[in-house]
Amino acid sequence: MSAETRTMGKRRPYRRAMDGWWTRNPFFVRYMIREWTAVLVAAYALVLLVGAVRLAQGEAAYSAWFESMKSPFALAFHWVTLAVFLYHTWSWFEIMPRTMPAIFVGGKRLARGVITAAGIAAALACCAIVLALALGGGR
């Protein structure tokens, strides 16, 4: 025991380390998964960006890019990305009641579940519109 630690009445506040903080609580693990969805959102944006650049470079370059989208690796990547995007959609609207100003209906605060459900319904509608435009609108 050092001389310093033997001194009575001396304050010696102990600071705990934050290393690995997010592994200590399932809530924080879910938070981290939510934040990491960004990696695949960025990767998907890069795929589209490369597509746009190839489009600018002409037919041969674009067709080669679109062929590469048919590779098993690209397809596997997009299946995983689809799952991650669905999780992103859910988590975005799950947190929404906390991130938007409170809405009062008839003097009572709108329940969290109602806001989340409305958001997911909006996402379903938007996805349906995009699919309808792509499948039918252009023909």
């Binding site: 959102v41 998907y44 997009h78 990305t81 689809l82 995007f85 669905l86 992103h88 959609t89 975005w92 609207f93 958001g119 909006a122 996402a123 938007c126 996805c127 349906a128 995009v130 699919l131």
Partner: peptide, 10 residues
């Protein structure tokens, strides 16, 4: 991305 992302990826 929450609204149209899944449809676009698909």
């Amino acid at each position: 991305s929450a609204l149209v992302g899944p449809a676009l990826v698909y």
